[in-house]
Write a protein that binds this DNA or RNA. Sequence first.
DNA 1: GTTTACATGTAATCCGTTACATGATTGA
DNA 2: TCAATCATGTAACGGATTACATGTAAAC
Lengths: 193, 193
Amino acid sequence: MAEERFTTLEYALLGLVGMSPMTGYDLHKAFATTPLAHFSSSPGGIYPALRRLVRRGLLGARLDTTTEARPRRVHSLTRAGKAALDAFVRQLVTRDELIRGLGAPILRFALAEGRLSQEEVLAYLASYREALESYLEELDGHKRRMPADARLHPRLALEQGIRGYQGELEWVRWAATKIRSAARGSRKRRASR
Amino acid sequence: MAEERFTTLEYALLGLVGMSPMTGYDLHKAFATTPLAHFSSSPGGIYPALRRLVRRGLLGARLDTTTEARPRRVHSLTRAGKAALDAFVRQLVTRDELIRGLGAPILRFALAEGRLSQEEVLAYLASYREALESYLEELDGHKRRMPADARLHPRLALEQGIRGYQGELEWVRWAATKIRSAARGSRKRRASR
DNA sequence: GTTTACATGTAATCCGTTACATGATTGA
DNA sequence: TCAATCATGTAACGGATTACATGTAAAC
């Protein structure tokens, strides 16, 4: 099997449709009215992406003709689509993804629920943490190598980057504890039944 | 004059060339070896972008034939290029830029030194702060409107976004104090001469 | 004597943005 | 009746990624 690759927009669409079947308009609204806007784009991006995913067999499109108005195309995940999502959330976080700064790492995390075991989620977060730590070391190297007479604005800008990744790192650690305590909670609930 | 628009990569190139004339390879190296990598891309992105900027009159290209090897094309800012940069750094921060998450706001800040007065820089940071504050309110609204039984991962993901913007906001406030104290410092130095 | 760094590009492909188009239904 | 919202798209354009192409000079 040829390892296929998709854009973050396509993965976001797959993930949303995977939660519940949706029309293009539903997806458009979801992107327009939630923080998902980050991945989004206008209808002109979404509809072609949906067509591509249908053509490649990851989404099924069923025409809903019950309404009087224009027929709505309700998309749902095919088995291949589910497999693609499963493969996606299994990719560990890399340095390049951090630099590129599309939201792929957090998108994968958001879509991982129910697709990865808690152990796998924790392993994913560990890869996230390691990528952040090593990139932060790199950035610190840049900071130290900066000439003492460097301009103020570039120095402050670098500092913004460092702080951003530090904050992300703190979130990763915090999220891991949340995941662990959720696991304990569900074990307890099961035990007390 | 038609208000021209450029990509962040093009602005980054203009900004770097504005600091000192450079060849395509110099720029490629700058992108490959510094945190600027965020804006960059491979030679395949840089060289065509340089050609576009030369064609549109923002960069001049002088052939350096003194070396034995292949002639190097040394680029430098034209008056139009300088004007485009000046106009760029004068754009205030908008909500959409925050969501899109290309690094435009911090790029403009980094390139503003020497192009904006200290008052203008502080006004720029104020627009940055306002955009962050109002978008943070939006995000907080999303958080509050989240159903109590919402899934864990999306909740944690939203929290990551909120924390990220909060960190950015703290940086903005901190940077403003740095700018102000730098201004005081230079006034002092001038006064004591 | 071979790899690495210098130095410049082209070609194919594809994706995203922007703007436009269409027509029904609902609310003011 | 007029605007807004629902709902679906198309077309044009341009830019980014990826991979390839080419050749020199220095270093090991």
